[in-house]
Amino acid sequence: MKRILVLGGAHIDRRGRISGETAPGASNPGAWFEEPGGGGFNAARNLARLGAHVTMISPRGGDPAGEMVTEAAYAAGVNDRPFVFLDRKTPSYTAILERDGNLVIALADMELYRYFVPRRLAIRWVREAFAANDLILFDANLPEETIVAIVSRANSLGVAVAAIAISPAKVVKLKPCICGIDHLFLNEAEAAALTGQCPDKPQDWVSLLGDIGLKSGVVTRGQRELIAFGKGGTFCLQPPSVETIADVTGAGDSLAAGVLFALMQDLPLEEALRHGVAAAALTVQSPYAVNEKLSAELLAETLALVQRAKILH
């Protein structure tokens, strides 16, 4: 069984969906929903449900929200190793959505992640966790100096390291260590923030990201073809049509989990992309950020809906 260490966001996602036409500056009828989330935590739970041995390290408050995250980790089979700050609150992301799911406004209360400083990586059990795993995955919720230290530690151990961009504002934290990252998962807005450019042709992302030192990356484009490059070549892949989309939250995180899980089974990049797209398709059909029915068997069945990746020249 492959062992994966995940460091990053594990917090509470709150989403309010307006049931009628949006009326700015007024009270809007709607429904409220909350669940554990965070890019790293979503990916960790997906990887565990697919059969990987996953350890998660993240800051957490000593509050009911933190307990909810702990329970979700246990339910998914994640080995949960948080840094608990009893006198502080667990981070949260609160979003207001229109009836069709488009974002109206969101508030990210992520102050606690500032306390995941580089010196915490020197703790003995954390050092041992780095050495004991086959892959290190982190997200850009963490402070820049901690991200740099994570990549440096993984590189020194010869352990592969992957990253999830999270947002255009946060992905820029990866610039100082971009050459040390083996796999990066990001969307077009995040790629534009990282490179400072927005090309006319999607395939140009490959050269733009390669020029800043990235070895391998997957650029998602919603329901349009994703672009990916790495040792196995350069590819594009059209996500399958999904009849019913319940919620797109967590789709990118599940795609990252599917791709990484397949790569760790020594599958080529083009086949790993199919696994990632299949995992994302299962996620958007669920009202949750992580499809609770996800399994290696269900993913294998869903692959039948995913076409082959095309080689880009």
Rank of each mutant, 00 (worst) to 15 (best):
A296K: 14
A72I: 04
Q238D: 11
D139Q: 00
S27F: 02
Q238W: 01
G51M: 04
E144C: 09
P29C: 12
V6S: 13
S27M: 10
A309H: 09
S216Q: 08
G180L: 05
P82V: 08
L298P: 10
F235T: 11
T283P: 12
I181V: 14
P239L: 05
A131C: 06
E34M: 12
G196A: 07
Y288S: 14
S92W: 00
A149T: 07
A129I: 05
I178D: 07
F130M: 09
Q203P: 08
K231G: 15
Q203L: 06
D100R: 04
L267S: 08
V206G: 04
I245S: 09
N46V: 15
K2G: 12
I150C: 05
L103T: 08
V218R: 00
G158P: 05
M264L: 14
T70W: 03
L312N: 08
F85C: 09
D134T: 12
I105A: 15
I147V: 13
Q203T: 14
L142W: 02
A262H: 03
W125K: 12
I212W: 02
A31I: 13
E243H: 10
T70V: 07
G9A: 15
L273M: 09
Y93W: 11
N28G: 13
T249P: 10
G8N: 05
L226E: 12
L267E: 14
A279T: 10
D139A: 03
V277F: 01
K170M: 07
A65D: 15
A192I: 03
A189S: 13
I212D: 12
I4R: 04
G66I: 04
E128A: 14
V277C: 15
I123N: 14
A251K: 02
S167P: 12
A191H: 01
D204W: 03
L194V: 01
G101Y: 02
L269Y: 03
L208R: 13
A279C: 14
V218W: 00
L267P: 11
D204V: 11
I123C: 11
R45G: 03
P199I: 08
A106W: 01
Q265S: 14
A304K: 14
V206N: 07
L5I: 06
E67G: 08
W205C: 09
D266C: 06
A281H: 05
N291D: 15
A162Y: 01
A106P: 10
L103I: 07
G8T: 10
S152L: 10
S19W: 00
M264F: 06
E128F: 03
L209P: 12
V104M: 09
S295A: 11
R15W: 00
I18L: 02
V219D: 03
K201G: 09
G101F: 00
K215H: 12
E145A: 14
P91C: 12
I57Y: 13
G276K: 04
L112I: 08
A193V: 02
F261Y: 15
E188Q: 10
L260S: 08
L50I: 06
A189L: 11
Q307F: 00
V219R: 02
L112Q: 05
L208Y: 09
F138M: 11
G213N: 06
R274M: 05
K215Y: 07
V284W: 04
C177Y: 02
T195I: 02
N102D: 15
A165R: 00
R124T: 15
L260V: 10
A48V: 08
S254D: 13
D100T: 13
H275G: 08
L97D: 07
K2S: 15
A257R: 00
R114A: 15
A154P: 10
S286H: 07
A163N: 01
I311H: 11
D13Y: 00
